[in-house]
Amino acid sequence: MAVDLDSCTGCGACVTACHAENNISTVGAEQAAIGRAKHWIRVERYWEGDFPDVRLKFRPVMCQQCDAAPCEPVCPTYASHHTEEGLNAQVYNRCIGTRYCANACPYNVRFFDFFNPSWDKPLHLQLNPDVSLREVGVMEKCTFCVQRIKSAKTQAQAEDRELKDGEIQPACVQSCPPKALVFGDLNDPESQVSRLSRSTRGSTLLEDIGTRPKVNYLARQTQL
């Protein structure tokens, strides 16, 4: 994935879309205040300068799907593991809730389910049937909308064709009004995401710790 910070307006549509797509339950204000809120993607805000000359910068942060993911070797049950495609997968069935992975993650993008999911009526009727509900005691995190990747692949297979670049759209990418988020296959050098990732503006989060994240952030060029 590539994120063009020049385009990001910090509107938060990605956060909303992610919650709706992935059945992410809310925990209430009280629990959120003690750090139990779950947001698979968040928009970080950075204020720069002193009043009245202040600038505001945004950075959407989701699971970076690291190639050398610190969350993987610490998992005693292999619930957190790497797939052949390079996704950092989380298998809820295997997870026993040790929370080692959340401790190891330098990006704070893993969330523990302290409660069984529940929604105020009638919100329980709007759940996405393609995504399972995580019960109490497991870790969850951004999957790059693996259900959409799966369904696009199945569809392409049914029509006996190759996947097109840009055909797979995670919920955050689809909902981004200025198209700041771009998703695609980094192994394909011709894909849009590969081209953007090769940009000289590109960098990854906490590069020096060597996690080799698969999300590339393109630095701002314009000043607001």
């Binding site: 809310t26 925990v27 209430g28 009280e30 629990q31 997870c95 026993i96 809730g97 409660f115 069984n116 529940s118 019960e135 109490v136 005691g137 497991v138």
Partner: peptide, 11 residues
């Protein structure tokens, strides 16, 4: 509800 005991024995 959130914060209420769930009575869940295993995950």
């Amino acid at each position: 509800l959130p914060g209420q005991a769930t009575g869940v024995l295993t995950t």
